[in-house]
Amino acid sequence: MLDKTTTTFSHVKPADTDWRSDGLRDFFLYRDLGVAAATSGRVIAHLVKANMAPEKGTGWHRHEAEFQIVFMTKGWAKFMYGDQETLVEAGDCVHQRPGIVHYLFDYSPDMEYLEIVGPADFKSIDMPAPCEVPTPTSWK
């Protein structure tokens, strides 16, 4: 059972938090869902959406995290997980196991996903490329 002294009830409505451009990637916008504050940093939940057309993508990286899922709510994104290209479309859920090397390299203009990660202050570590990455689709 959770320790009720370190977690709180949270209810965030769409108008309660703004989309922000100061997240991990400048080509995405982020909207905090209040979970990091409610869990004292154990978990973060935020919405992420496309802000600019894909040019270089995220680069090869891994996260220092115990848990991470991506639930695509709108549009699509293409990831490389190791040497495996993976199309993630609206309605799909991906569990990114701890330490998996990946690269988000392409996405639709309407892409939006829910990301849940524990802990909230997870780190992103650049990694060497295990393979070539396909060219992203142009928005023009």
Score class of each variant (00 low, 15 high):
Met1Glu: 15
Met1Gln: 13
Met1Ile: 13
Met1His: 14
Asp3Met: 09
Asp3Cys: 09
Asp3Arg: 09
Lys4Trp: 11
Thr7Asp: 10
Thr7Ala: 10
His11Ser: 14
Val12Thr: 15
Arg20Cys: 10
Arg20Trp: 00
Arg25Thr: 09
Phe27Val: 01
Arg31Trp: 02
Arg31Phe: 06
Asp32His: 03
Asp32Pro: 11
Leu33Gly: 09
Gly34Arg: 00
Val35Gly: 00
Ala37Ser: 14
Ala38Arg: 08
Thr39Trp: 03
Thr39Tyr: 06
Ser40Val: 09
Ile44Trp: 00
Ala45Met: 14
His46Phe: 07
His46Tyr: 11
Val48Pro: 03
Lys49Ile: 02
Asn51Phe: 08
Pro54Ser: 05
His61Ile: 07
His63Tyr: 06
Glu64Lys: 15
Ala65Thr: 10
Phe67Val: 07
Phe67Glu: 12
Phe67Thr: 11
Gln68Ala: 14
Val70Leu: 14
Phe71Met: 07
Phe71Trp: 09
Met72Thr: 15
Met72Ile: 15
Lys74His: 15
Gly75Ile: 01
Trp76Thr: 01
Lys78His: 05
Lys78Val: 00
Tyr81Asn: 12
Tyr81Gln: 12
Gln84Val: 09
Gln84Met: 10
Glu85His: 02
Thr86Gly: 00
Thr86Ile: 09
Leu87Trp: 08
Val88Lys: 01
Glu89Phe: 01
Glu89Val: 05
Ala90Gly: 04
Gly91Val: 07
Gly91Ala: 08
Gly91His: 04
Val94Lys: 03
Pro98Ala: 13
Pro98Tyr: 06
Gly99Arg: 10
Ile100Pro: 02
Ile100Phe: 06
Val101Ile: 13
Tyr103Asn: 14
Leu104Ser: 12
Ser108Arg: 05
Met111His: 09
Glu112Tyr: 03
Tyr113Trp: 11
Leu114Met: 14
Glu115Phe: 03
Glu115Asn: 10
Val117Leu: 08
Pro119Ser: 02
Pro119Val: 05
Ala120Gly: 15
Ala120Asn: 10
Ala120Lys: 10
Lys123Tyr: 03
Ile125Ala: 03
Ile125Gly: 03
Met127Cys: 13
Pro130Tyr: 11
Cys131Asn: 00
Glu132Val: 05
Thr137Asn: 08
Ser138Arg: 11
Lys140Trp: 10
